[in-house]
């Protein structure tokens, strides 16, 4: 393999990886506060993309993205308030099925609003054919946007969870809900907040990846599956681990193309998911003890 080809694969892998990671982070936030996997996470990504595309017809790009993120955030909050909040100690299975139902609901609604065609935001810099030369390879500027946004989100999230009192309250809620309640933390509000946060991150992800992957009413599902794989691979609940796992999976997928036909790309990622679930169900970077305490 020439060094040029090696770098091309590496960058392709990093592109895939950052997209997966950014979706996986959304899964983790809700998992942390509620202990459930929100299967509507992919739909937040789709909503962010679709809303920003519609808003961009009459608003400048940054404003369109900002408003799309805020609207999706409100939708996230509404979903929690309407469907989840009033449940009295619901079982994990029940909550998961609720989120699957919500995802179908959002998808069908999007089909009615936006129709079946693919849409996309324009490239933030340049256009469909522009590329930046890094070392000896060509990379689309949008790829750098995805990597950059992913990095910024991770850093901001870690700071938020470590240093703000709100972040600490959310973490307390995830460690032990009962204890957090006893300390006077309103755990229900924390859950709403976590839905808002992950909806916002999903929507932002949907905006930055839209020029690369396009947005269609059902494009959330595919991304959600990959994001879920990555979240499990890294260890559920750990955003930093999700990024490492995302990059790892992306790079494995990209390099696998050199050896096996492209058609097997998805088979590889699903095989990895299965192996992880069998061998290390707490993920590559998770601790077994911590995972043992969780219900799911």
């Amino acid at each position: 393999m020439t060094s040029e080809l090696f770098l091309q694969y590496l960058f392709a892998g990093i592109t895939y990886g950052s997209i997966y990671a950014i979706v996986a982070i959304g899964f983790n936030i809700i998992y942390n506060t509620t202990g459930i996997i929100n299967f509507a996470q992919g739909e937040f990504v789709m909503l962010g993309g679709m809303l920003s595309i519609s808003l961009h017809t009459f608003l400048p790009l940054p404003l369109a993205i900002a408003i799309a993120v805020i609207i999706t955030m409100i939708i996230g909050a509404l979903i929690e308030i309407i469907f989840i909040r009033w449940l009295e100690s619901p079982s994990v299975l029940r909550m998961i099925i609720i989120t699957i139902g919500i995802s179908i609901l959002i998808r069908e609604a999007a089909l009615h609003v936006w129709g079946e065609g693919v849409r996309s935001l324009p490239y933030f810099n340049g256009n469909e054919i522009s590329s930046i030369r890094i070392l000896s390879t060509n990379v689309s500027p949008q790829v750098l946007w995805v990597i950059g946004v992913c990095a910024v989100i991770v850093v901001l999230l870690s700071l938020f969870f470590k240093f703000t009192s709100l972040g600490q309250e959310m973490r307390a809620c995830s460690s032990n809900r009962l204890a957090a309640t006893l300390c006077g933390i309103n755990t229900k509000n924390m859950v709403t907040l976590s839905f808002m946060l992950s909806a916002a991150i999903g929507a932002l992800a949907g905006c930055v990846v839209s020029p690369i992957t396009y947005t269609q009413y059902d494009s959330g599902t595919g991304l959600a599956i990959k994001g879920f794989t990555v979240a499990v691979l890294g260890g559920l609940g750990n955003s930093m681990a999700a990024v490492s796992a995302g990059l790892l999976l992306g790079i494995i997928e990209a390099f696998s193309i050199d050896i096996v036909p492209l058609a097997f790309q998805d088979a590889i990622s699903i095989s990895i998911l299965l192996i992880i679930l069998f061998v290390r169900p707490h993920g590559l970077f998770g601790s077994k003890e911590a995972a043992g305490l969780k219900e799911f």
Binding site: Q8, F11, A12, Y16, I212, T213, S219, I257, L262, A263
Partner: peptide
Amino acid sequence: EVYDKKATDLSAVIAKIK
């Protein structure tokens, strides 16, 4: 090469062919 009908990015396979 055959790609998935839901493929979202094909830069790796393009690199291979190129």
